[in-house]
Design a protein around this nucleic acid. Structure first.
Lengths: 233, 233
DNA sequence: GCGACCATTCGGTACCGGCCGAACAGTGTC
DNA sequence: GACACTGTTCGGCCGGTACCGAATGGTCGC
């Protein structure tokens, strides 16, 4: 019993450093970054970034892929992303008075819509989730689960493959608490597949180089037709 | 954006110390402990424990209640318990070859059944969850949620108050990953109320002074009658 | 009031860990 | 092969912090 206290502490220690925390937050976009990119992003020397990545990989939070002279890292697992999001959601909802026009517009874009590792978040993610609940596709009254109608909708209307929607190790549907909206949105396997389909169909597109996304005109039409959502930008 | 990295790091830093981690794990039993008890439990000087408790309260993980010359602390919130359980679940499932008879029997008792902050866990908690799923009271196929039948069962068969089962800030039903069974069990408001009812009815009783619980004879009969569960000890 | 007891504050010490720069190794390019 | 570039290793510096013991402040029981 006492042993697991030190395990818990070691795990928490991985995120207890500002630079490592910034690295993990950057990787929340679900993509692979090189060590150099992360060093530049966190404004530390490359040697320092190397050491951090070593610890994070050692601790199982990240996985690496060597390719030529590059070292790509990404989050090990959707559950890691979930963990980091959960921790972020606990942070006091402070009034972040970020100064500078670029920061403000970037923040506004993120609030409007973004990816949260592999699913949609921000106002867009919450709007989709709410519309699905309204339509009886999602049940939030007794927890957070897809209904039978919801499963059918994903395969019929959205043309997802049924074998992609089997409950496996990862839960099919999960609520993920949004740190800007303070509301739940759809995560889990279904949330990931839905997000991927939105990208494949050209319904959403990335804004800039970060995690921000916004619906395309075709996407706005699809949201209106499929979920009765209008006025989503 | 860069700002929240330091927030995340500060939050993680609270759990990144072995003594503070041990304190939080001890408080997972849901009860209030005094500063002195925690100091003895973690084998540090009282002055050291005081400093740790100060930081944990400051960081919002714990709340304190002064009463006479005692200072009682407990976890601030069910979501804190959830967070700590989530982190613990990520810890490598190592073969804990704990030596000594007392440690072995204590561990066996914990594996059999225990409370996880405010709901049932261990083999007992998983067995109840599985039986409820089997009976169509709980839906794990599309997520983790109570069915309409499940809600009715809680009020009719278990005589829980309907007003206690309204979806509020805390989700009604949530899956909580067990670190011994590696399986989900019922948590959230419904899990807490169900656990409380089990105690009130004398169906389960604590074993020793820790978190371990086991069903009473009356509890075994109730589990058989209500859920068709037999052979639970 | 006096003595137990719980908790807190305050120096002081020791150690861990983040950071950098410089040197070095591996990889791709001209 | 020379060069540029990415990433790694190593030594050294520095700040933060976990820890303790002794002294102090409250609170309860006699």
């Amino acid at each position: 019993m006492m042993k697991s206290a030190s395990d818990l502490a070691s795990l928490a220690a991985l995120l207890a450093d500002e630079t490592r925390a910034a690295i993990c937050l950057a990787l929340l976009d679900g993509r692979s970054w090189t060590a150099g990119e992360l060093a530049a992003h966190t404004r530390v020397a490359r040697s320092t970034a190397t050491e951090h990545l070593h610890r994070l990989v050692e601790g199982g939070l990240l996985v690496e892929r060597r390719q030529g002279r590059h070292r790509y890292v990404q989050l090990a697992d959707p559950s890691v992303a979930h963990l980091i999001e959960d921790l972020s959601a606990r942070i006091e909802p402070r009034q972040d008075s970020v100064h500078g026009l670029r920061a403000v517009t970037a923040n506004a874009a993120l609030r409007r819509g973004r990816t949260c590792y592999d699913h949609l978040a921000g106002r867009l993610g919450v709007a989709v989730t709410d519309a699905m609940t309204e339509a009886g596709l999602l049940d939030q009254s007794g927890g957070f689960a897809l209904t039978q109608a919801g499963l059918g909708w994903l395969t019929d209307a959205l043309r997802l493959e049924p074998e992609d929607l089997r409950p496996g190790k990862r839960p099919l549907a999960r609520g993920c608490l949004d740190w800007t909206e303070r509301r739940q949105h759809l995560a889990g396997t279904a949330g990931a597949k839905l997000c991927q389909k939105f990208f494949d169909n050209g319904w959403v597109a990335r804004v800039g180089s970060g995690r921000a996304v916004r619906p395309t005109p075709a996407g706005q039409a699809a949201l209106r037709d499929l979920l009765g959502l209008s006025g989503i930008d």
